[in-house]
């Protein structure tokens, strides 16, 4: 079984490697770059939602914080871009660490609202701390990323960089979820009380997952900044947060490749809709594709509700007769 899996993995690597050679159009290359970037964010969010059982509707804030930190360090402090890519994700990680402990204590609705509120807070800050962030018009003049003498200027070059980062992310995620920690996360999913009762600090594990998810979002943000070389607040708003959550849910929770698949589906769909809808409705403008995202979201929740926040496709705990027994007061 290991051989088949390895073969498949090898095929995927070859496919990704050959993609820029086969695809000439810069437009298609840029779509693949966006998929790679979003997949990195979705990996982190997938860990949070699928394994740690928490939800975040503010992930775009970490993505934005990574992008802005990288951009500010590179333009105002003149740091070498490669250093910025490594340093920038630390800010969202530290922020996640600080807010994580109290926020992750919240349940259900309250967690959704608190993360959503945090996302909007950061978005407003990016727009209104003009002196630092350039305000609504954004930051320009971000240099190209270079590693030694290789300058990542074209989309074809950047594709390799982003997908290498994604590969590394997948490697780390595979390590984590297949380690004893992955098993512990599954256990927490099943019964948090029992996990606590054998001495597992569940709050701390959830916090660590939250911090890692913020780090990955920040990393993707930093890579984004050096790719587009110009950033404004608009890609880091609530809609993007919803898209990230959608990618994770569409791809399937608790799976390694799900977030990648989800990112590909959502980015692909966005591009398709941006092309198709104006053909059908010539006067349409703006981000109307969110209609379809909303509908997809609702449909998935309606027809695959068990898929959400559960590692298995169907929750076994429901059938356990023990859960039906009442407790002794």
């Amino acid at each position: 079984m290991g051989f088949k899996k390895n073969l498949l993995l090898f095929a995927v690597v070859i496919f990704v490697f050959c993609l820029p050679i086969v695809v000439e159009s810069s437009y298609y290359m840029s779509i693949f770059i966006v998929i790679g970037l979003y997949a990195i964010v979705a990996q982190g969010l997938g860990l949070l939602m699928g394994w740690a059982g928490q939800v975040s509707f503010g992930q775009a804030a970490f993505y934005g914080l990574g992008a802005y930190t990288a951009a500010i360090l590179a333009t105002r402090c003149q740091w070498p871009p490669l250093l910025c890519v490594f340093v920038a994700p630390l800010l969202p990680s530290v922020i996640a660490f600080i807010i994580g402990r109290p926020i992750l204590k919240l349940r259900q609705h309250y967690l959704v609202l608190a993360t959503l509120g945090f996302g909007i807070f950061v978005f407003v800050m990016l727009k209104d701390l003009g002196a630092l962030t350039g305000g609504p018009s954004g930051l320009t003049g971000i240099p190209y990323l270079n590693i030694g003498s290789i300058i990542f200027m074209t989309d074809h070059q950047y594709f390799y960089l982003v997908w290498c980062a994604l590969g590394l992310t997948l490697f780390c995620m595979a390590n984590l979820t297949r380690s004893p920690i992955g098993r512990v996360f599954k256990a927490i999913h099943s019964s948090e009380r029992a996990a606590e009762a054998v001495g597992i600090d569940t709050a701390s594990l959830k916090l660590q997952a939250f911090v890692l998810s913020a780090f990955l979002a920040g990393l993707a943000g930093a890579l984004y900044a050096f790719w587009v070389t110009f950033i404004s607040p608009s890609p880091f708003g609530f809609t993007t947060s919803v898209e990230f959550a959608l990618m994770v849910v569409v791809g399937g929770l608790g799976t390694l490749w799900g977030p990648v698949l989800g990112a590909a589906i959502i980015v692909g769909l966005t591009e398709f809709l941006r092309w198709a809808v104006p053909v059908a409705l010539p006067h349409a403008g703006g981000e109307f594709e969110i209609i379809f995202f909303g509908i997809i979201f609702v449909l998935i929740m309606l027809f695959r509700p068990k898929g959400l926040l559960s590692i298995e496709k169907s929750s076994m705990a429901v059938n356990n007769p023990a859960t039906l027994r009442s407790t002794d007061a």
């Binding site: 409705l281 969110i290 979201f297 609702v298």
Partner: peptide, 24 residues
């Protein structure tokens, strides 16, 4: 009969679908 979290995400889905429709 779904979980509370599922329901709240449904309302988010409806919300962005309606906002998209309003935009169109």
């Amino acid at each position: 009969k779904a979980s509370v979290l599922t329901l709240i995400i449904i309302t988010i889905g409806v919300s962005i679908a309606l906002r998209g429709a309003a935009l169109l």
